[in-house]
Nucleic acid binder design. Structure first.
Lengths: 151, 151
DNA sequence: TAAGATTGAGTCCTCAATCTTC
DNA sequence: GAAGATTGAGGACTCAATCTTA
């Protein structure tokens, strides 16, 4: 394996390691508030809060998650009173999902916790490093999106 | 939410999005060679190939994965003839896992595929950007490790 | 008693089949 | 027939309990 190959291989190992570590870390923090929700339900809730009302298929596409996952998570969030569902009057197949007041408050609490964790992890980075990392991460996501759509 | 808060929130969303996209992409590529193996089994195999013989508990710690996962994956890899297990003569509780010839060849094929994908995704990045991203990713992993061990 | 490892139960995700509405 | 959404089956991971050996 060549020098350049080696760099990509190492980056790949870092990416895999990050996913395992990050997933495990977030796992433990999932249900602190006793809502009994799925691991990823909060991600769906956050998406609804930040990006506004959406139908389930749009949520699935926007989050890159299977529609069946969204369907179950939204049902759980609805039962917990964190989102509300209204039938789209223009298209009775579709539902529109919006966050309730409680959903928005919970999301804000989770977001603050999350930012606190991230601050601690990136404490000794320079602002430039943090900005550059965020930029490159976003660019990688863009490349992944393009790669997906190219198939 | 303040300006700095906002930056961390956005970075968090990018990280989450990356994990979902990356996981889904890798999912589809898991079993091209018909070994019928678990999603993460190839990661374990790669770890054994690159880092040499190890006992299961060391693999679990090194990969940041639950021991039960390693146990099942190693069993599957052994059944597929990709790794071999020998009892540690000095400690009969422990097994030592080594990759077989077939395991090393398969890992090399997967690695080449993987590097090809990564090359395509990072095609239009400058070498400096790729190096900086790998460096920061590694640093984040280090911070996650420290955070884990601090608890 | 602790460490290495395995196994079983429960949960979440993926994929395919199904239902309703366009 | 296609799109929005739901549901069921199977697989993978987490956690806890168990077994063996140090």
């Amino acid at each position: 394996m060549g020098q350049a190959d080696d760099e990509y291989t190492m980056l790949g190992r870092e990416l895999s390691m990050f996913i395992r570590r990050w997933t495990r870390l977030r796992e433990r923090r999932t249900d602190q508030y006793g809502y009994g929700l799925d691991r990823a339900a909060f991600a769906v809730l956050a998406h609804v809060v930040f990006d506004g009302a959406a139908r389930l298929s749009a949520l699935a596409a926007g989050m890159c998650v299977d529609l069946s996952v969204i369907s179950r998570q939204v049902a759980a969030l609805e039962a917990a009173g964190l989102v509300a569902r209204t039938r789209d009057p223009a298209d009775r197949r579709a539902s529109l999902i919006v966050a309730t007041e409680a959903g928005m408050e919970l999301t804000e609490r989770k977001r603050e916790q999350f930012v606190t964790l991230l601050r601690k992890l990136l404490d000794d980075w320079t602002p430039d490093e943090r900005a550059e990392f965020a930029r490159l991460m976003g660019r990688l996501n863009g490349a992944l999106t393009a790669h997906d759509e190219g198939k």
